[in-house]
Nucleic acid binder design. Structure first.
Lengths: 253, 253
DNA sequence: ATATCATTATGTCAAAATAACATAATAAAA
DNA sequence: TTTTATTATGTTATTTTGACATAATGATAT
């Protein structure tokens, strides 16, 4: 190998079975106890965390690679996945530092000088996820968005960019529903939106606005169990949702 | 222009000076005579057209590569550029067909079986562009969006995706202004929006809505010269624009 | 000079969407 | 039965949108 080895998340796939110098990072978002959470991996024998991700096989599409990685880390198949940005800067982090931290894991010759990463965010139902580490890590865990530690590589920035993209997208598509279980209550949905948008919403206006989208169905029964008035249960109606999407009901400007 | 550059989504960057199996495609959009236009290249000795693009140098960021390519094809430096999608399917076009069409230009050994492409759209001022072919092409020309021929590779689909992304973005950001000269009239701006959105707009409502954004300045003088009432001239005010962006005035949902 | 023509600038009103606001109902626990 | 936490919901004023038509103007033709 010439004088070009170092790198990124992408370890020089010793196998040429992977696209060289290209990787993929996934921001897997879940919602639990009124908090947005993200799935992180702890590298073997360290306290260093990073996002799930990895190289792309020659035999799979980029999207398929994202689904594969998500399947490996969460056990889930059907996931809402959104490509949101390519990270292609020349210097994306302090490489010598990373190499030092991870040298016991990866032969330095296996690093690329540089890799480009495609960022995806995934919205998943928290309770269905079975967090599973990969070959380089020994722990896969949910972290509250607000408590994310310093991550390896440029992953803190990638998470930030993903959240921004999510906030933008949720303004015109009710994608938040992908984060909830099939049945949910209006207050739960509101708290999810508040977590994503990071600001409080008025419950009356929220209720009206969400229902006006015509993509929710209310069940006749309420949920019992709390020391309070029992809330109605709702369900996301995929068909109605798609009908709404068709209309492309964006206003200009 | 760097030696050995270009193009296509799938030519083996003969040198390791480029990121392998990764390319970049640019949809350069301009507006002229009430039409949206896109810059296309005709391959040497053929009637085959494709988008500007090419591989990324090891020594440049992905964004820098996009700017470099745009500079090479248009002569312009300061360009509004937006990364909008990665095209990463396994099979993006009929490779044998392409190889046949272009075999006189490129040694088949230099083709990759597969490459991933990062799509950018660029919004430019039509009259400032100096269309310039690259090493593989002998013509660089504007085409009306509605008259784009069958392009090489998956470029027709990429153009379509770019337009969709543009239409989406123009709904919440007044980016269209990048397509006009510094001074423009309200009807010109309206016709631009109509071209992008592909539907007629009411001039009174358009006027009201655009001005309400508070990013335009009206000049005291009007433009003379037509056999009709002379229109006012406007200018895009960058400062005001940025002030508005800060507010992040997106409604939720 | 005047008429004609193409184009531009602009206002009103009804309907819809938004934002701001408070209280009664209820399930469980005390 | 009282208390507590939480949920469901309605009204009004304001803002935004959408639908609609006409008068003004600059050039050209007569």
């Amino acid at each position: 190998m010439p004088a070009k080895e170092k790198q990124s998340i992408a370890i020089k796939a010793a196998e040429p079975a992977y696209l060289p110098q290209l990787t993929l990072d996934c921001i897997v978002l879940g919602f639990h106890q009124d908090q947005l959470r993200v799935l992180l991996l702890r590298w073997k024998g360290t306290q260093e965390w990073s996002l799930p991700g990895g190289p792309i096989q020659q035999s799979e599409s980029v999207n398929a690679a994202a689904y594969r990685i998500l399947k490996e880390r969460t056990g889930l198949d059907q996931i809402y996945l959104q490509q949101f940005q390519v990270f292609g800067d020349l210097v994306r982090y302090n490489l010598p530092e990373i190499k030092t931290k991870l040298q016991h894991l990866i032969n330095p010759e296996l690093w690329y000088n540089r890799a480009v990463s495609i960022g995806y965010y995934a919205l998943v139902e928290y309770s269905k996820v079975n967090p599973t580490p990969d070959l380089f890590t020994d722990e896969c865990q949910w972290w509250e968005i607000k408590e994310i530690p310093n991550l390896l590589f440029d992953h803190n920035q990638i998470v930030e960019a993903a959240l921004q993209a999510l906030r933008q997208q949720i303004n015109w598509q009710p994608i938040g529903l992908n984060l909830l279980p099939e049945q949910f209550t209006m207050p739960e949905l509101q708290r999810l939106y508040e977590a994503i948008l990071n600001r409080p919403l008025d419950p009356r206006n929220f209720h009206r606005k969400i229902l006006s989208l015509n993509i929710l169905e209310r069940f006749p029964e309420r949920r019992k169990g709390g020391a309070f008035k029992s809330p109605y249960l709702y369900r996301f109606n995929q068909e109605k949702y798609e009908a709404v999407l068709q209309e492309g009901n964006l206003s200009f400007l």
